[in-house]
Amino acid sequence: MAELHGYEPVGASLDTIRRSSEPGVKRLAQELPPVGATVDLVVGMVRAWDRKPWIWVDLTAPSPAED
């Protein structure tokens, strides 16, 4: 679960199982930031939801910068 500052009525999460093949998500899952940490993520998809919250944001992690 994630909190989107300024969009509190909207639900959000990063599904590390479904998105495990994405390089940024794989890196983030290996590092496991502590609970309550602020992490920069990217909107992967915005979906209408059939229950509250009515909007769900599917998050992903940016790929590591290539050198």
Rank of each mutant, 00 (worst) to 15 (best):
I55T: 14
W56H: 14
V43K: 03
S20N: 10
W49P: 00
P53H: 07
P33T: 03
W56Y: 11
R27S: 10
R27K: 13
W49R: 13
T16P: 00
A37Y: 02
S20H: 09
A37F: 04
V39P: 05
L41P: 03
K26L: 12
Q30G: 09
W54G: 14
L28E: 06
K26A: 15
R27M: 09
L28Y: 11
I17Q: 15
D15A: 13
T38W: 09
D50T: 10
A29V: 03
L14C: 08
A37R: 05
V57C: 06
V46R: 10
L41S: 08
R18K: 14
R18L: 07
I17C: 03
A37P: 02
V46C: 08
E31W: 01
R47K: 15
S21F: 09
P34R: 05
A29S: 15
R19H: 12
M45N: 15
R47V: 11
P53M: 06
V42L: 08
W49Q: 15
S21R: 14
V35M: 07
R47H: 07
G24Y: 01
L14N: 05
L28N: 05
V43I: 14
E22K: 12
L32V: 11
V25Y: 03
G44S: 06
P33S: 02
V25T: 13
P23M: 05
D58T: 07
